[in-house]
Amino acid sequence: MSTETDMRPILLVEDNPVDLDLTLRAFKRRNFANPIEVARDGQEVLEMVPRWVAGEPLPLVILLDLKLPRVSGLEVLQQLRDTPVSQSVPVVVLTSSDEDGDVQAAYRLRANSYIVKPVNFEKFMDVATQIELYWCLINHPPS
């Protein structure tokens, strides 16, 4: 592992176009160095797994919404954790829900972090900054 910044992509799983757009804008405004891949629902994420198995680079971190069409975020998380290749990829749940039940379920499925999306856009941008700062620069992910 080099000491340089790890340039693997961040995988953003988000179905809501407004939230997706605002998130990407927020990252863009903070001059994110890492490329951002987007999955629009859970199924898309699961379809990536065979590619990772084939050798494509794993994402540096997965930002996962819970309320997703087709396959829910908690199901995706379970599949990722049940699959050897993706077992150790950091997953940050990024959702509107601050329900106890959701928080507990996510952590039970070994989510690495749980972040409630603020409604206030300024706070939301702060969150994006903090995520990048932590997961892409400070955190040392498994390779």
Partner: peptide, 21 residues
């Protein structure tokens, strides 16, 4: 209430986000 917590908040974030932008 679960839906409210998610679905009402997403548009609000949009309204606030775009008005701030």
């Amino acid at each position: 209430t679960y839906s409210v917590s998610h679905d009402l908040k997403a548009p609000l974030r949009g309204i606030d986000g775009y008005s701030r932008l």
